[in-house]
Computed example of a mutant assay.
Amino acid sequence: MTVLRVDATIQGDRSASAALADLVTAELTAARPGETVVHRHLGADPLPADAWATAVGAGFVPEADRSPAQVEALALAGRVADELRTADAAVLALPLYNWGVSQHVKTWIDLVVAGGTPGEPVLAGKPVVLITTRGGSYAPGTPKEGWDHGIGYLRRIVGDVWQADLTVIERELTLVGVNPALDAFAEPAALMKKEAEEAAAAAGRALASR
């Protein structure tokens, strides 16, 4: 099995999403040590922000007339799409930033789409663990209920367009202990962390059993 792991955190070693992805891959490789994990880190090694527009524009230019930048952008789009096509499973750690997916994630998704055919289900039937973390809480009844514009979009792309067999792990209140305004929520935050860690470990064992 080849597993594609994609991270998008900008938090480095402090990342809550990466910590959960680590649990998934640790359980998987403990049970199946020979598995190959291919890692793309969109936060540490971002894709060029203009590559998608360049690749799309190249589609309207005869192949012989394409500029070197267009050729390069199309090749990059093909590579990122192929990473998903050739993977047997994926672990996607994509935190919420500014109430949606980060520019790094959006660029990656757009390039995957540009590197395939319209609506191509590049993950059809493959097990995918989608991890998303949020600094605050967006639960029903909270002041920012409905402000999370990331998870719905990711479900549409990964689950509906790419047709993955999707497992979603969510953790909120990750800024408790960092932002003093959230100190009152230490107890629910600890419970959410524990539940997310248990879900991540279970997801890793489930991947290993496939």
Rank of each mutant, 00 (worst) to 15 (best):
residue 156 R to P: 00
residue 127 P to S: 01
residue 81 A to C: 09
residue 129 V to C: 12
residue 193 K to V: 04
residue 105 V to Q: 13
residue 6 V to W: 01
residue 112 V to S: 03
residue 200 A to Y: 01
residue 42 L to I: 03
residue 81 A to T: 12
residue 8 A to G: 14
residue 18 A to Q: 14
residue 137 S to R: 09
residue 205 R to G: 08
residue 112 V to L: 03
residue 144 K to E: 15
residue 192 M to K: 10
residue 57 G to M: 00
residue 161 V to S: 05
residue 34 G to C: 11
residue 204 G to C: 09
residue 118 P to V: 01
residue 52 W to N: 11
residue 25 T to C: 14
residue 104 H to G: 02
residue 75 A to S: 13
residue 18 A to P: 08
residue 192 M to A: 14
residue 19 A to W: 02
residue 98 N to S: 06
residue 130 L to M: 08
residue 51 A to Q: 04
residue 158 V to I: 15
residue 167 T to C: 02
residue 9 T to I: 05
residue 21 A to N: 10
residue 15 S to G: 07
residue 183 D to Y: 01
residue 92 L to H: 10
residue 11 Q to F: 09
residue 183 D to A: 15
residue 131 I to A: 09
residue 101 V to Y: 10
residue 69 A to R: 12
residue 93 A to H: 01
residue 11 Q to D: 11
residue 80 V to T: 08
residue 19 A to I: 02
residue 81 A to H: 11
residue 128 V to W: 13
residue 170 E to S: 14
residue 179 N to V: 11
residue 110 D to M: 02
residue 120 E to T: 09
residue 186 A to E: 10
residue 63 E to N: 07
residue 66 R to L: 04
residue 62 P to A: 06
residue 132 T to I: 10
residue 91 V to Y: 00
residue 103 Q to A: 15
residue 50 D to Q: 13
residue 95 P to W: 04
residue 107 T to R: 04
residue 70 Q to T: 07
residue 92 L to Q: 05
residue 160 D to Q: 15
residue 101 V to E: 08
residue 70 Q to H: 06
residue 141 G to Q: 08
residue 100 G to T: 13
residue 5 R to A: 09
residue 156 R to K: 06
residue 32 R to F: 12
residue 93 A to L: 04
residue 52 W to Y: 15
residue 161 V to W: 13
residue 2 T to I: 07
residue 152 G to V: 10
residue 172 E to T: 02
residue 72 E to F: 08
residue 187 E to A: 14
residue 33 P to D: 14
residue 15 S to D: 08
residue 111 L to N: 04
residue 135 G to Q: 07
residue 10 I to W: 00
residue 120 E to V: 07
residue 184 A to G: 15
residue 195 E to L: 11
residue 61 V to N: 12
residue 60 F to I: 06
residue 204 G to D: 06
residue 106 K to T: 09
residue 93 A to C: 00
residue 109 I to S: 05
residue 14 R to L: 14
residue 126 K to P: 13
residue 55 A to D: 04
residue 57 G to S: 03
residue 89 A to M: 04
residue 194 K to Q: 15
residue 159 G to E: 06
residue 86 T to N: 14
residue 62 P to H: 03
residue 144 K to G: 03
residue 104 H to L: 10
residue 67 S to W: 12
residue 66 R to P: 08
residue 46 P to N: 00
residue 155 R to S: 11
residue 3 V to G: 08
residue 57 G to H: 02
residue 36 T to L: 12
residue 76 L to S: 00
residue 36 T to Y: 04
residue 103 Q to V: 14
residue 16 A to K: 01
residue 24 V to F: 06
residue 57 G to N: 12
residue 37 V to M: 10
residue 48 P to F: 05
residue 119 G to K: 10
residue 149 H to W: 08
residue 74 L to A: 15
residue 199 A to K: 07
residue 82 D to M: 06
residue 64 A to R: 13
residue 14 R to Q: 15
residue 178 V to H: 03
residue 7 D to P: 07
residue 204 G to S: 11
residue 209 S to E: 15
residue 81 A to D: 04
residue 23 L to T: 10
residue 32 R to S: 12
residue 163 Q to T: 14
residue 197 E to I: 00
residue 62 P to W: 02
residue 69 A to I: 00
residue 12 G to R: 02
residue 159 G to Q: 02
residue 66 R to T: 05
residue 173 L to Y: 06
residue 157 I to M: 15
residue 59 G to N: 13
residue 1 M to P: 12
residue 73 A to R: 05
residue 30 A to I: 03
residue 160 D to T: 15
residue 2 T to S: 14
residue 160 D to S: 14
residue 109 I to R: 00
residue 183 D to H: 02
residue 35 E to F: 08
